[in-house]
Design a protein around this nucleic acid. Structure first.
Length: 128
DNA sequence: ATTCTAACA
DNA sequence: TGTTAGAA
């Protein structure tokens, strides 16, 4: 994974900073967590630590809410996205597997044609 | 000083 | 969602 992504997912911001950056109340931020959206890790002192990605997601949630979408609707949206990503990963996985499959076939073919493989059936000499 | 949880005149 | 109390 790229460093840039790691930094964006690094949870280092306390809720106070998140409040200012998103203009959301602590109550709202914690409520969204209760609803399963944006669940930040906790520090040793049980303090929520947010990442820049969390900030983005909170702003995204704020926009959905402003558009009149309720919690259930937002949950559905993320549920669909999650399902879509899972599907894409599954397809990528299958794609890799078929590539490996093809390599096996080509490798096998090469061995046969080159005659380097262990001959399972000896070609019987034909009488002249 | 900040944040956390739980509760509601 | 706001607010508040008591603890960490």
């Amino acid at each position: 994974m790229k460093e840039k992504e790691l930094r964006r997912s690094q949870a280092v911001l306390p809720i106070g900073t998140v409040m200012k950056l998103t203009d959301l109340s602590a109550r709202q931020i914690r409520y969204y967590e209760e609803q399963g959206l944006v669940v930040p890790p906790r520090s040793e002192g049980n303090r929520r630590m947010y990442s820049l990605n969390d900030i983005d997601k909170l702003l995204e949630i704020k926009d959905y809410l402003a558009e009149g979408i309720n919690m259930a609707g937002i949950k559905e949206i993320y549920a669909q996205e999650a399902a879509k990503k899972a599907k894409l990963q599954e397809e990528a996985k299958n794609r890799v597997m078929t590539d490996a499959e093809m390599r096996r076939v080509l490798q096998k073919e090469f061995i046969n044609v080159s005659g380097l493989g262990k001959p399972t059936t000896f070609p019987h000499n034909q009488h002249l």
